[in-house]
């Protein structure tokens, strides 16, 4: 028994028939072919699977695909535009905020949500905002730094992060 779902992922609309039990993270990775969203636990602890649903950070391993029906989903693949890195991606690169890179998409998406909520977070607010994400490589030092410097860059640029994250998603593109 399958159910039909339709959603907009990184600005592209798709429709599929899926089993009701299919997790969103598996749908994104295996049906939509977007393997940048990762899985690192089975108890909603690690945040590697973080995506934005209607602009809000969500652990996609804890959502059924059918629950995302009709929504706008942004994954790590949808963050850079026209070959230009999002300031958060750029900051992770500049500050060596990743080593193996497995946790990184989740961190970047969670940071995107955090900075949209709070464009100038204190270190403590960064820590609280990202406590749902685990990294085993970096000791978090450079992730903290990357988020700080992304926040500065985004404020400097006067960029409204909301627009960058979901703005384009509002106008579906033909496949």
């Amino acid at each position: 028994m399958t159910q039909s779902v339709a959603m907009t992922i990184n600005g592209r609309r798709r429709e599929d028939h899926v089993e009701p039990r299919l997790l969103l993270v598996h749908y994104l990775r295996e049906v939509a072919g977007l393997t940048g969203t990762h899985i690192a636990c089975d108890t909603s602890q690690c945040g590697a699977c973080t995506v934005l649903i209607d602009g809000e950070a969500v652990k996609s391993c804890s959502v059924f695909t059918v629950q995302a029906d009709g929504r706008q989903v942004t994954t790590i693949e949808g963050l850079a535009e026209d070959g230009v890195l999002h300031p958060i991606q750029q900051a992770f690169w500049n500050e060596h905020g990743l080593q193996c890179g497995f946790c990184t998409p989740g961190f970047i998406m969670a940071a995107a949500y955090l900075l949209r909520q709070n464009p100038s977070p204190t270190d403590e607010e960064i820590e609280r905002g990202l406590e749902g994400n685990l990294c085993r490589c970096t000791g978090y030092e450079n992730i903290r730094k990357a988020v700080r410097s992304a926040s500065q860059a985004m404020n400097r640029a006067g960029a409204e992060p909301t627009a960058q994250l979901v703005g384009s998603a509002a106008a579906p593109v033909e496949d």
């Binding site: 295996e30 693949e77 850079a80």
Partner: peptide, 21 residues
């Protein structure tokens, strides 16, 4: 020097084991 490994990893284009199909 910034790592050349990073651009693919920060944009979701890494190739980890579960990405092999």
């Amino acid at each position: 020097i910034q790592r050349r490994e990073d651009p693919k990893l920060i944009t979701g284009h890494g190739n980890f084991i579960d990405d092999v199909n």
